[in-house]
Computed example of a mutant assay.
Amino acid sequence: MKRLLIDINSIVPYYVTGKVNGIGRTTLELIQALAGIKNLPFEVVLYSQNMKGIGGRNTGLPFKTKHLYLPHREKIDKLLAWFPIKECLTGYDIMHIPHNFEYVYSPEKCVVTLHDALFMKIQEEAFEHEKMKQIVPPFMRQCKHIITCSESSRRDIVETMGIEPEKITVIYWGIKHDLFFPQKDKLNIRDKLQSKFELSSPYFLSVSCNAERKRTDVLVRSYIALSREQTLSHDLVLVWGNPPLNLLKEVKNSSVATRIHFLKNISDGDLALLYNGAEAMFFPSSYEGFGLPLLEAMACGVPVITCHNSSLDEIAGNAAIYLTEPLFDSLIDVMGRLDQNTIDTEPFVENGIKRAAQFSWEKTAKETIGVYLDALK
């Protein structure tokens, strides 16, 4: 039987700190979904690399594991790429790298998930985009096949890296419908929100991070500006663990400082609760390879407000209220009308639930298996 090696180094932080980024999260969901499919036509081996021994065995999944007791650091990885160490250690026929890039000895034996071409189109100070411009495109040209999570990302990869479209397969991310679904008991939701987060007022929600493209700072400043124009009945809740200090200072000096809530270290269960309690979810990003919070919010029956760019309208379809540019003015307009209940959100709720039902991790896993089988031929 052919052997598939999946590099799961992106999920190691989950077993160390309980937190993981979007790429780690989707990798974990994928291997969990693969484990739920019976009689896989190949052997799966989970590969990890660190000095602590944390890796595949921590997942509890019924796959073989291989661990290399070396630091997972760039200098070490570059050195390893000169020798067929992984090949000798694991004997794999094809390796899946689900986190955009890795230094490897045999790129022609790799299937790579390149989540987006963000670094080719946008420069953000917090990330090494210039470096990625140098190392990622050659690797994409050398690898066996590329998986990406939206048609928008495929277009960007083709246009910016000169990759043949036939080498790229679009496989949408999924959603855990047993976790993200509409909770009907609104009284119970309000009680839990008050107990867990001291949230008693209706609120708008945003799920974000410090990436500049998320434009969550614009959302916060729009809320503050709107508060000067009308009396707000909704608070603003942001799942955002490390907002910049200058923004926190602006919030503190505003008249709505007690109405803006920053939450961090939120579990998936609490995130589902926050979605269900929200009147609307704002996601004003300027670029996304997919936009998982859109899908989660729609699955919970929450109207979403987002932008017509990159993959966002591809994922949200007719289930979103779309912002226009300039963003600041559009946010004030839409937020103000939602606060005054002059937008009928029920059609967006219904369309969102139907839209989200089309996505599942089982479907993602089955389509990914098809790519593996083609690569193993």
Rank of each mutant, 00 (worst) to 15 (best):
L68G: 04
H96G: 00
D77M: 13
L89M: 13
H96T: 09
H96D: 00
C88L: 15
T65Y: 00
K86M: 14
F63V: 02
P84W: 02
Y69F: 13
I76H: 09
L79H: 05
I85V: 15
K66N: 06
A81I: 01
W82Y: 15
K78L: 14
Y92N: 06
L80T: 09
T90N: 02
L68Y: 07
Y92Q: 00
H72V: 03
W82E: 14
K64A: 13
H96N: 03
L89E: 04
A81L: 02
P71C: 01
W82D: 03
Y69V: 07
R73E: 15
K78I: 07
I76S: 01
E74I: 14
H67Q: 10
W82M: 05
T90V: 15
I94N: 09
L79P: 05
K78F: 11
R73W: 14
L79S: 06
G91H: 08
T65K: 11
L70P: 11
H67L: 04
T65R: 09
M95S: 09
W82V: 08
L79W: 06
Y69W: 03
D77Y: 06
P71W: 02
L89Y: 04
L70N: 00
L79F: 14
A81N: 01
L70I: 06
E87G: 00
L68I: 10
I76C: 12
C88W: 15
R73T: 12
M95F: 08
P84V: 03
H67W: 00
E87N: 13
C88N: 13
H72I: 00
Y69E: 02
K64W: 12
I85S: 08
L68E: 09
K75G: 01
R73L: 12
L80S: 08
E74L: 14
E74D: 11
T65D: 08
Y69R: 14
K78Y: 12
H72G: 08
H96E: 06
G91D: 11
H67C: 00
L79Y: 11
K66Q: 02
H96F: 12
K75E: 13
H72W: 14
A81R: 10
K66R: 10
L79V: 04
F63C: 07
A81G: 01
K78S: 11
L89N: 03
T90M: 09
F83I: 13
K64N: 15
E74P: 08
K66Y: 03
T90K: 05
L70E: 01
P84K: 02
Y92T: 08
P84D: 03
Y92H: 07
E87Y: 10
T65S: 13
C88A: 15
E74N: 10
W82K: 14
A81K: 10
D93R: 02
T90F: 03
F83L: 12
H67K: 00
I94P: 08
G91L: 13
T90Q: 07
F63D: 11
R73V: 08
Y92A: 03
I94G: 02
